[in-house]
Design a protein around this nucleic acid. Structure first.
Length: 490
RNA sequence: GCGCCGGUGGCGAAGUGGCUAACGCACAGGUCUGCAAAACCUGCACUCGCGGGUUCGAUUCCCGCCCGGCGCUCCA
């Protein structure tokens, strides 16, 4: 496939350098709070990439780090009077629960910063040997930017004109140069710290990714991915740290996911447009709708997240799921319709080609919806057969292998979110319809539908419609068809 | 200020130097239905921010302008 490469500034072919396994590293979360939808856009787009690569038969070795030690974590945990491990545990668990809700697949390897301190220390020692690291009087270590002339090659920044001392942070007066960044931070009194051969302290933010990518993927690997904000300085610093030691490109290919806006503005708590995944689930939006809304705009474009967009995505998913139900449960005669078969072939080709072209998810959706319409028409006309069903099913399977929204896995995240809200004392934030829906069991729904069926048989449409209305108000949609009544949770 | 990205129907959004400018949502009319829902059909941008240029021809290339967003500090 072809994927934009930040390093080259062009759309390059993405292939495993060893011809077998694609080795990739993607920056994971800093677990100091619940993840917000901006975080998840990045993880979702990376998930789309991984799912598409797997669909095309590429083997993956995908590493994601979890930053479980940093300034915010230390500050928040000490404020709470607990260890950083106890503090982060909750957010790590929440993070994975959220990924599950959104259908984000697990990377092959998950690497935690606190479990790799020794690797980071080793790397800092090597940097020292290479003349790229120095220790200051307080016991901190810094990377010496002057030792890495290529600095800025990823973000295309020319820092040569930056004057030393122009904007020196008063706390960091010991650094040789204002732009030098921390590899290792000496602890302030009472702070979490590790005793190591390079002194007592904790790692700087950037060093973990260099150390862990090297550990799991080697000195040079295929792809490094993350949010656009990480390009500078985080990724630039990773490159400096790694390449100063290995003298090889850290990664050949770099992918950066664009930020999302919410209601046209950058998401921020002060703007009041800041949403965690849980906030949205409690409002009654389906995890699948959130997933589709966040991946339907190609990763390199700014995405404006709105509630209207979520409603839109919900409707689109409904259409796909309704069709899928018709396809699965319908009865078709043996045989095939050449027109359907031809459309299947074209649809699949166009779908794969769109994704192979820098993950154009917006374009990839189109042929799928085209096929849905064409198939529905054929079914309406009685010109859809058993072999058509099988062929169309295969296309939908490949669609769902990447988009992962047709198969309905929405009930579990809903239920968990409501449970969580109760535990956290946030029950007031749960949308009333959601509470009603969660409390309504399948058995209760089926009982009401049976009663409605009885009413309809005796042509008591008043009673039948009353039941339908009651269910509708609780978010249950009813569809009568020749094959009986169908219902779904809206 | 410097750098970067975008401005396509009511909304989201794809795309191309010249076929009827995808697709989704919404809306309107129709078919079907006890009524709905679902599904289908039809309609919905003579036009792609504005001005100029290149060209036989530009929404697509170039220049200028306006508007929106982002980065240059922690941040997915």
């Amino acid at each position: 496939m072809r994927l934009f490469n930040t390093l080259s500034g062009e759309v390059d072919e993405l292939v495993p350098s060893d011809g077998k396994e694609l080795r990739m590293y993607a920056c994971g979360p800093t677990v100091y709070d619940y993840g917000h939808i901006g975080n998840f856009r990045t993880f979702l787009e990376i998930d789309v990439l991984r799912r598409f690569l797997k669909l095309t038969g590429v083997q993956l070795r995908h590493v994601m780090n979890i930053t479980d030690v940093d300034d915010k974590i230390i500050r928040n945990s000490s404020a709470a009077g607990i260890s950083i491990g106890d503090y982060t545990k909750k957010y790590v668990e929440a993070f994975f629960e959220d990924l599950d809700a959104l259908g984000v697949q697990r990377p092959e390897i998950i690497a935690r910063a606190t479990e790799n301190i020794d690797r980071m220390v080793e790397l800092i020692e090597k940097l020292k040997e290479a003349g790229a690291a120095y220790k200051t009087e307080d016991g901190s270590w810094y990377f010496k930017l002057k030792a890495f002339p290529e600095y800025g090659k990823l973000s295309k920044k020319d820092l040569s004109g930056m004057e030393d001392g122009a904007r020196v942070d008063v706390d960091e007066y010991e650094k040789d140069s204002a732009r030098d960044f921390a590899l290792w931070k000496a602890p302030k009194p009472g702070e979490t710290a590790w005793d190591t051969v390079i002194g007592r302290g904790r790692p700087g933010w950037h060093i973990e990714c260099s150390a862990m990518s090297m550990k799991y993927l080697g000195d040079s690997f295929d792809l490094h991915a993350g949010g656009e904000d990480l390009m500078f300085p985080h990724h630039e610093n990773e490159i400096a740290q790694s390449e100063s030691v290995t003298h090889q490109p850290l990664a050949r290919h770099w992918m950066h996911v664009r930020f999302l806006l919410v209601d046209g503005k950058k998401m921020s708590k002060s703007e009041g447009n800041f949403y965690t995944l849980r906030d949205l689930l409690l409002k009654g939006y389906k995890a699948s709708a959130i997933r589709l809304a966040l991946i339907s705009v190609p990763y390199r474009h700014q995405l404006n997240f709105t509630f209207d967009g979520l409603v839109d995505a919900t409707a689109a998913i409904d259409r796909l799921r309704t069709f899928n139900g018709r396809l699965t449960k319908g009865k078709f005669e043996a045989g095939e319709n050449p027109e359907v078969q031809a459309a299947v072939k074209k649809s699949h080709q166009d779908y794969m080609a769109a994704l192979a072209n820098d993950l154009n998810t917006a374009e990839a959706r189109a042929p799928i919806f085209d096929l849905v319409r064409l198939s529905n028409t054929a079914m309406d006309q009685g010109k859809f057969f058993e072999a058509d069903r099988e062929a169309v099913k295969r296309v939908l399977a490949d669609f769902d292998a990447v988009f992962a929204v047709i198969e309905d896995r929405d009930a579990e995240p809903m239920r968990k979110a409501v449970e969580w809200a109760k535990q956290e004392g946030r029950e007031a934030d749960v949308a009333p319809e959601l509470l009603a829906q969660v409390s309504l069991t399948d058995d209760a729904i089926n009982a009401l539908l049976a009663e409605r069926d009885q009413a309809k048989r005796r042509r008591d449409f008043g009673r039948a419609d009353a039941i339908r209305k009651e269910l509708t108000e609780k978010g249950i949609v009813i569809e009568d068809s020749k094959d009986g009544v169908r219902w779904k949770r809206k």
